[in-house]
Amino acid sequence: MFERYFCEGSEDKPKIDFNPHKNIFEITGNSFPEESSKFFIPLIQWLEVYTLNPNEQTHLIFRLDYFNSLSGKFIYEILFTLQKVLQTGKKINISWYFNADDTFIEEKGEEFKSAIEIPFELVQIQ
């Protein structure tokens, strides 16, 4: 099976753990890197290959605290790339976590939900 994609998070970069073997796909933390394209493009290229032969069920989890507008654009690219899974007949869904009083992350989640076709649930953390 396909290699794991892992990136340790930092103050301005999210932790990314995409592990097809364990069926874990998670993006966590803050995202406002200096070079967004350098940070996200390798991940998107990885996803291009993954979507050729994805797991039976891919469950992508977002636990973001903050991201800048350019990261938002790349999150859209990630979701757009993952839409290809739908064409393979395999299953994919997304959980977008947000804190109860955090309308910033909640609204961003709603926007992505309306912009793509993958089943997308917003999950409130108490």
């Binding site: 507008s69 938002g72 912009a115």
Partner: peptide, 22 residues
């Protein structure tokens, strides 16, 4: 905002002004 969000990423244009729209 949505139209800029959905535009494919172009290294020349980077965010194409999406930051100020936001």
């Amino acid at each position: 905002y949505f139209s800029k969000l959905k535009e494919r990423y172009d290294p020349e244009k980077r965010g194409a002004g999406i930051g100020l729209i936001d």
